[in-house]
Design a protein around this nucleic acid. Structure first.
Lengths: 205, 205
DNA sequence: CGATTTATATATCAAGATGATATAGGTGGT
DNA sequence: ACCACCTATATCATCTTGATATATAAATCG
């Protein structure tokens, strides 16, 4: 089997804040959980139908005076139960894939110019995100000081601020390192080194 | 279309270090790039066949005196070119999905006991990884000081050390926060707040 | 006023990624 | 003989996702 459908619960979670259409869900996801969770239309619309058939959401068509019809979904009682039950399940660590690191790992076959360009571009994107997170924290605290969800929103925002600040330091350090790389003459692969390590090839989880 | 096949290049990269079987590739991936890139058998074996049909790798069967036959794959000249061409393509930012953060974001519907348990478990795993990275750095520097790949291996290891150190601070801060959460009385959703922001709903980046 | 662009809104597809599972030979212990 | 474990290859069903299609209506522009 594949893995369990987590998009389903992200959508349930977003609908728990207020009734929304698929289009709304996409925009709300980008604006709220977008820093650590992405959902596209291709997962939202099929999942809304699935959730409907499972009785976890209900829908009704809203005709708009300006613009096309909207199909607005709301959590049912059963949907709330499902959401709360999911919250009580131990979260699994998500697999990470970082193409930048993969390219740097095989960096002996790529010139420093390319490497530094990749890093500088990623660094700028990281700084923009970091500033955005910081400004959202400031605005939340001043504009929505008394909302029951605030402590939890701040926790996830701080996660981004902590890790992205550390990332920025790594970018600076790494760019400097790459400007003065002196290559060794050996050609032993890293893989063999680690596999033959003291733990007998087994790595710590 | 889906996205371009990146497993293919991870496998090419690993094979560039030395000829390996599918089983070797899995173990080598875990031991070397496993901290930022995962490959399972379900992607390795089909991709090896694909790479073979594309002429990017060659293979030969090795009978083992103890144990079953091995199919050992090597990079061809064409495979080397493909790998180097890929290294020169700008890496795309990978989408991040963090189930722990998703559950904390909707944390007002979950008791603090569960939340703290999740965080403490994740923190322990993070600390183990961090220590493992630090010891690998130390061992690499002392045991393989003159390898041409060393600067690049260290770069990726330092990435993990930087971000996981920051993560550890966030865990401590967050666990302390959750022990003294005072919930507000309001119930405005975060989503609406951000969507109505000055940038008109568009987020940076 | 007609043309193009932009925003709203729903939907589907092909390709890629992945946890689970199947199969099988060999080794070592009890 | 049986069980547990390691090596080794392979496939499936499900989930995930970038790209694309379709349609309405508002906004921009020459």
């Amino acid at each position: 089997m594949g893995r369990r459908n987590k998009s389903k619960f992200a959508i349930l979670g977003l609908l728990s804040t207020e009734p929304m259409s698929g289009y709304d869900i996409k925009r709300a996801a980008e604006a709220s959980i977008g820093y650590f969770w992405q959902e596209g239309y291709s997962s939202i619309y099929p999942n809304l139908k699935k959730l409907l058939s499972e009785g976890l959401v209900s829908n009704k068509v809203e005709a708009q005076t300006p613009g096309p019809d909207r199909i607005v979904y709301s959590l049912t009682e059963k949907g709330w139960e499902e959401l709360k039950a999911w919250l009580m399940l131990e979260p699994e660590p998500e697999p990470v894939r970082n193409e930048l690191l993969l390219k740097l790992f095989f960096g002996e076959h790529l010139d420093a110019k390319h490497q530094i360009r990749y890093l500088e571009k990623a660094r700028v994107a990281n700084e923009i995100r970091l500033k955005s997170l910081q400004s959202i924290v400031a605005r939340l605290k001043s504009e929505l000081p008394d909302q029951s969800g605030l402590p939890y929103w701040l926790i996830t925002l701080k996660f981004g601020i902590h890790t992205r600040t550390a990332l920025d330091a790594w970018f600076e350090e790494t760019i400097n390192d790459l400007k003065t790389v002196v290559k060794g003459s050996g050609s032993k692969p890293f893989t063999k080194f680690v596999l033959k390590a003291a733990d007998g090839g087994k790595n710590v989880e």
